Simulated scan of single mutants.
Amino acid sequence: YNITDSSQTTGSGDILTLRVNSSTMSDYPGFEIPPYPSYERKPLYADTAFEFMFENGEHGHGRWNMANSTPPETLVDKDIQSGFNGEAQKIIKKKAIELLK
C-alpha cells in the first residue's frame, strides 16, 4: 500500500498525468527458512513486485501467487474513461458556470 505515497497527479491544459512507482517499496529478501529442499534464496526486487501487482494484478508470482485481482492500472484507466463516475463533469460544469458569470 505504500506505493500510494509515491503517487503524483499533475495537469496541464486538457492532459492529466498520473504517476506511481516502486520507489517507496522495499525489496523482499526471500525466505529465511527454505520452503522446499532445493530452494535458493534470491531477492524479489521492489520494481519487479510492483510490476507483478500493479500491471498484472498478481499477489505473489508463479507457485507463490496467492490470488489475482484486477490490476490497479486497469482500474485507473476505467476511472479516467468514466470521468471518475461523472465527478469530473460536475467539476467542469461548476467551473464553467463560475467563469461565465
Rank of each mutant, 00 (worst) to 15 (best):
S23I: 03
D47A: 00
A46Y: 01
K78S: 08
I15H: 12
T70C: 01
F84M: 03
K90L: 06
P43G: 01
F84R: 00
T48P: 02
G57P: 00
K94L: 04
T48S: 04
K95A: 14
E55Y: 15
D79S: 04
A46K: 00
T24D: 11
H59W: 15
F52S: 08
S23C: 07
A88K: 08
I33N: 14
Y1N: 13
T10D: 11
F31E: 13
T10L: 10
T70H: 07
E32V: 15
P43L: 10
E58H: 15
A96T: 04
E40D: 12
S69W: 02
Q8H: 09
H61I: 13
I97D: 15
A49E: 05
N85S: 06
N21Q: 10
P43Y: 01
D27P: 05
I33R: 14
M53R: 07
L16I: 06
K94H: 13
M25E: 07
N68P: 05
Y1C: 14
T48C: 01
R19F: 12
Q8N: 12
T24H: 05
K101C: 13
K94C: 05
T70W: 05
E87S: 02
F52N: 10
F84Q: 01
E87D: 10
M66S: 15
A49W: 11
G30F: 05
E55D: 14
L44A: 02
K95W: 15
I15G: 11
F50N: 01
K93P: 02
T70I: 14
D79R: 05
L75D: 06
E32A: 14
S7F: 07
F50Q: 06
K90E: 06
E51W: 13
Q89N: 02
P34K: 08
A96F: 12
K78F: 06
E40T: 01
T10V: 05
L100H: 10
P43C: 04
Q8Y: 03
D27H: 06
R63I: 14
F31M: 12
G57C: 08
Y28G: 01
G30Q: 09
N2C: 03
K95P: 03
S38G: 03
P43I: 11
P29S: 10
D77I: 09
F84E: 12
S82L: 02
N2S: 02
I80W: 09
L75P: 12
Y45S: 01
I33P: 06
E32F: 08
K101Q: 09
E98I: 04
Y1S: 13
H59E: 14
A46R: 12
E32G: 14
K78N: 04
P34F: 11
T70K: 07
E32H: 14
N85T: 00
G11V: 08
S38C: 12
S23G: 05
T17V: 06
K93M: 07
P43A: 09
N2K: 12
S69T: 13
D5P: 01
A96M: 12
F52L: 13
L18K: 00
K90N: 02
F50C: 09
Y45A: 08
R63P: 04
V76K: 01
G83C: 05
I33H: 13
K101Y: 10
S23Y: 10
E73L: 10
S82M: 11
S22L: 03
